[in-house]
Design a protein around this nucleic acid. Sequence first.
RNA 1: GGGCCUGUAGCUCAGCGGUUAGAGCAGGGGACUCAUAAUCCCUUGGUCGGGGGUUCGAAUCCCUCCGGGCCUACCA
Length: 687
Amino acid sequence: MTLRRILVTSALPYANGPIHIGHLVEYIQTDIWVRFQNLRGHRCVYMCADDTHGTAIMISAQREGVPPEQFIEMMHAAHVRDFTSFDIRFDNYGSTHSEQNRRMCALFWKAMREADLVVQREVTQLYDPLAGVFLADRFVKGTCPNPNCRAPNQYGDSCDRCGYTYSPTDLIDPVSTISGAKPELRSAPHLFLQIEKLHDFLEQWTQSGDHLQPEIANYLKGHFLQEPLRDWDISRPTPYFGFEIPDSPGNYWYVWFDAPIGYIGSTLQWCERTGENLDHWWRDSRTEIHHFIGKDITYFHCLFWPAMLKAAGVNLPKKVHIHGFLTVNGEKMSKSKGTLIRAETYRKHLDPAYLRYFYASKLSSRVEDLDLNFEEFALKINSDLVGNVVNLASRTARFLEGQTLSETYPDDGGLFAQAAAEGEAIAEAYESCDYGRAIRIILAAGDRANRFVEQAAPWNLKKDPARRQELRDACTIGLNLFRQIVVYLAPVLPRLAEQTGRLLNDPIISWSQSQRPLTGRRVEKYTHLMTRVPKEGIEAMTQESLEQESARPAEASQAAPAAPRDDNAPLQAEPLLPETISIDDFAKVDLRVARIVAAEEVPGADKLLKLVLSLGGDQERTVFAGIKKAYRPDALVGRLVICVANLAPRKMRFGVSEGMILAAGPGDSQVFLLAPDAGAKPGYRVH
RNA sequence: GGGCCUGUAGCUCAGCGGUUAGAGCAGGGGACUCAUAAUCCCUUGGUCGGGGGUUCGAAUCCCUCCGGGCCUACCA
């Protein structure tokens, strides 16, 4: 095997918000690939940076009342912290707002000029006279110009009600979302790159050489390459947070010009820090460049970026790996459903290794969306990792604690050799980003190993002192099969690999360790390498994500919505009671937090659901609640509610109801359960 | 409207021209008790979305229809 020199990047996250679990698909995918390459002995470095420029950042910084430089610094620290906590290991994590990047941009710019790709044209755009900035489409809102629609509060590019597309100047009563001012038309000179001049090159590059997944090559051919490529507007007039264009004062490079150059800027920063040579990595054709990106930024990376690289005489990527989006429980991530989960929130409640493994098991080389279903997530971790893989060590290491593995590897009926032989197939799957396939092969080896342990039954051998060596041999085999699997999983689960290295006193650092059994090593005391997914962790995480959303509604819609005015209908329907009660009256009602542990429909009842509530310990209540038209039973299980615990049991046609749960609303489908905030435990009394 | 992808067991998926269509999980039955209610054995379950065609032979190739997803709709 010849050693490769590889430079890998993930898309630069925008420094305008925290990292969430959708971002992590990409960084985990990339990190696994990089770790895999290094494990195989190749030289593979991983470059990334924050994408820090543009109007959006400028506005966010203003809103926070800090200069943009300070704003992006705070974001940078938060991003680094998040990535680190998910074991995503960059060789350099820079910023597009760095001196190195400014230098690289200037270099590219010079090349663009020399290749005669730059032209200047006037662009007329809406301008916010109050804020003093030009407005991109999404910073303008107004009424949809479609005479059949006229939906208010629509963005400047298209109407999300009727789907009509238009220019922001078509909007009726347009308003700047930045200042609320009425925008006016203004024109300014912009600089454009004529990438049509590189059309032939792009056609050839995208359609040959396996640089892109087939569906992407196809997509580009059908969508962009069929007609002349439009000039690309790569400048923005002041004020703009970014780099001023050296030979065009008052104009700044558009964020999408300096962002991909950030890959190189970050590499340069790394070179300056480590003494590496930049040309070695970006101008030497023996180096492979691999970009990992999401499908949303395909054309930047597959058309503009190759065009820029080509014009600048820099290496083109060997491959752009494109992945789909994350959905959660089958739907787009949603703030209101608590499924837009920040990396930080996840980490507070669940082990990052779970997410790494889950994503790995679902990823393929296709541009497909990936669904994170929490039920499947818990099931997969528990049965694949805890039940199958880690269990192997758990059930054999204890018999050999403080002792050593057999001096020569015993006859295991060919199990180790078989899994060793499968190493190449696993490696190929990793190489082509088909991690799901790799995992499947690895788990099959785990199944065989568990079967072996079952047959060898070390727990029986242990009973007979005369069979000590047999016991030692059986556990030597079990632990070796386990370790072999851990080597294969090391790119996905680096911590498990580290722990296993310590358990067997032999750090896992190379793929080749999967090909040779380990003998004679001392076995350390076994402690759990991974625990089962705590169900309440998933709940708490979702809850917390929901609360984060409701805690900051102000910035959600810049158009300053009127303060909500609550209407009078509910009180008219059910007037306030005239009598007052004493605190003692209230204290007679024993309200408790309860968890719904079971919920089912009641045959023959239109409105009732039968619920089983846990009040903590072994206290349970069966309650019939009239909420069937508002809630699906399966959506209720696990939820925390408030129940009246000391209500006298009441016999109903369908059984005895032992309490009530609290809910509000007029009835039927308009019923709303009361729920405690995150952190409450079943059994807590409501005071 | 156009383009791409997709529809195989309850769920997640593998198989992509060749013996009676597979795996994991879930379900059912049994065993074991070393292990984090983990593990092992047996087992239920599919007209491979529908219909046409090509072929000696199709889940696999072609056409068409239906369902799901994504991207687009003169925006890059």
